[in-house]
């Protein structure tokens, strides 16, 4: 089943999840067209108009440098999509591959999965902090760090699912017909994993937002000049009492996006192949 067909059937009859999905589409559009829609340059300083209240022309007001919060929020959507998609790709590629190969080649798998076990001895946020210490602050490094953190859980989950599939008849049939390992793994097993992977991806996307925002907040995430929702919160937090709305908008944007992604993930999971129901329980 193609990914495009999975969405409508998962969303059918689920109002909240459908609204969540539409919100995510909106975020994606904002990310793509931020340059066109944004009324101001997100980096342009305007010391005269510091901490302006929401209104016209600054819809969401301005921050303590006088930058337009609405425009920064639009560019922040771009970061949200980049961090989310990036982390998902890193986590699914590395973790997914490790999980699948481990289940398929049992000897290698024993070794690899022990390694995964060891990495899982590190709590998620701690592991992110350790890795961040070794790297510079940059968008790519934030993605790599978050991706690696969720690669471990992905590896575990995919390991279990591939083991199950490996013992199924159609795989035996492929083996008997002399198919190569590569063709069995990628032609026969992988297509069956698409929908659980999609569920996994949506939860990783959601969690990645929270982790990235937390790293930004700690001053260990994206470089401070990058307009991300997390950075906006981090920079303006000391103005909370003077301009409470400054933290409201980026915060609500994060919450809405994470909530939407969780709703979509839940809808996808409820719709999933019953074989894997037990394996996926969120990250």
């Amino acid at each position: 089943m193609s990914v495009l067909k999975l969405m409508p059937s998962a969303l059918a009859g689920r109002k909240l999840a459908t609204i969540g999905f539409l919100w995510l589409v909106l975020v994606l559009l904002a990310a793509v067209f931020a340059g066109v829609i944004a009324p101001f340059d997100p980096l342009e300083l305007d010391p005269v108009n510091r901490l302006a209240e929401p209104g016209w022309p600054h819809l969401f007001g301005t921050d303590h440098f006088g930058r337009d919060t609405f425009s920064r929020a639009l560019y922040g959507a771009r970061m949200t999509v980049i961090i989310g998609v990036g982390s998902v790709v890193v986590a699914l590629l590395s973790g997914g591959l490790i999980g699948m190969l481990s289940a398929y080649f049992t000897k290698l798998g024993h070794f690899l999965m022990r390694g995964v076990d060891v990495l899982m001895a590190f709590p998620a946020l701690l592991m992110a902090l350790v890795l961040i210490t070794l790297l510079e602050r940059s968008v790519a490094n934030t993605i790599i760090v978050i991706g690696i953190v969720y690669a471990t859980t992905t590896a575990r989950i995919l390991y279990g699912m591939t083991l199950k599939l490996k013992n199924e008849v159609f795989v035996d049939a492929a083996v008997c017909s002399g198919a190569s390992h590569r063709s069995i793994l990628f032609r026969h097993i992988l297509p069956n994993l698409i929908s659980p992977l999609l569920v996994q991806a949506s939860f990783i996307f959601a969690f990645a937002q929270l982790q990235a925002a937390a790293l930004d907040f700690l001053g260990l995430g994206l470089p401070p000049e990058v307009p991300s929702w997390g950075n906006m919160l981090s920079e303006e937090r000391i103005y909370l009492t003077r301009a409470p709305w400054l933290l409201l908008y980026p915060g609500l944007l994060i919450i809405l996006s994470v909530f939407s992604m969780n709703l979509v993930g839940d809808a996808l999971r409820d719709n999933i192949d019953p074989r894997f129901k037990d394996d996926i329980s969120g990250v």
């Binding site: 925002a213 937390a214 919160l233 909370l240 933290l247 994060i254 909530f259 969780n262 709703l263």
Partner: peptide
């Protein structure tokens, strides 16, 4: 259960800051 999912979607530092506020 909807509220629980919403609560799990809130960045902790944001919640903390507003609780302080």
């Amino acid at each position: 259960s909807g509220g629980a999912m919403l609560a799990a979607s809130i960045p902790t530092f944001w919640l903390g800051l507003y609780l302080i506020f």
